[in-house]
């Protein structure tokens, strides 16, 4: 279980904390949503979990171990347990889809074996891109690129997948595909998935639990049905209102 304890992040040269005493428990096997408007601190929060960003104070506890201050090989080993998917896909443009999926093997072992390549091919098939192994990212649609990124995330058999606005750059059909894929992965492997989004729609379609973040603070937390049925906070109401207005 990932347990965030009183996470505060203040960027250099800023008086306003990006995160202000955030405490969240993310149960194993969950699809957990963190929602907020732009600038609420969602991305900072998710980047604190895999320590791309170091919290100014507070602790990230994973399965009872404090990982907040990990460095070097221990940090890299921890990061392989926590895969990440980005809004901009984060693929290497000069590598084929297959080589992108093989990158985590290269990162952990310094080489890519025939077995690794076979596993990467299976993962590409798993995300429906068996025929795109030799394509470069620029030859793929946004949805296809994000599926390559998901295959890459799965390469290390992660216990957690962090999705930072993973569908925000995609059209509705691709969004649906990606969300379905994430749900299947969660059901089949039990991988815990953390979904960072500004879209209530995404939360409604995929998440079991949700946390609402406003100005770096948790203002509401609970099962999705409960938060949706009876929102307490004004921002939650606004986020919900905007969705119904859009629809």
């Amino acid at each position: 279980m990932i347990s965030l304890q009183n996470i505060t992040k203040v960027y250099d040269g800023s008086d306003v904390p990006a995160l202000d005493g955030v405490s969240i428990d993310i149960p194993d096997g969950d699809i957990f949503g963190i929602i907020g408007i732009s600038g609420a601190g969602k991305s900072t929060l998710v980047r604190c979990i895999n320590l791309l960003e170091r919290p100014t104070s507070g602790h990230v506890i994973v399965d009872g171990t404090d990982v907040t201050d990990l460095t070097g090989a221990e940090l890299r080993a921890y990061r392989r347990r926590v895969a990440m998917i980005f809004q901009g896909f984060g693929l290497l443009a000069q590598k084929t889809a297959l080589d992108n999926v093989c990158f985590p093997f290269l990162a952990s072992n310094g080489r890519v074996t025939a077995d690794d390549r076979a596993k990467a091919s299976e993962l590409l098939a798993r995300v429906g891109l068996a025929d795109k192994a030799d394509s470069y990212p620029a030859q793929l649609s946004g949805g296809q690129q994000q599926r390559v990124a998901i295959a890459r995330a799965l390469a290390c058999d992660p216990e957690y997948i962090l999705c930072d606005e993973a569908t925000s750059a995609l059209d509705p059909a691709s969004t649906q595909q990606i969300l379905d894929l994430l749900r299947q992965i969660n059901e089949e492997t039990g991988t815990t998935i953390l979904v960072i989004t500004h879209s209530m729609d995404v939360v409604e379609r995929i998440c079991k639990n949700v946390t609402v973040l406003v100005h770096g603070k948790v203002v509401e937390q609970g099962p999705v049905e409960q938060v949706f049925a009876d929102p307490q906070d004004e921002t939650t109401k606004a986020l919900l209102g905007r969705v119904s207005w859009n629809a």
């Binding site: 791309l52 901009g88 984060g90 693929l91 290390c156």
Partner: peptide, 17 residues
């Protein structure tokens, strides 16, 4: 692009790698 490098970092790659 920054996110391609962050993705590599998030895969657990060392800086020389």
């Amino acid at each position: 692009p920054r996110d391609a490098i962050e993705a590599a970092e998030a895969c657990g790659a060392s800086i020389p790698r």
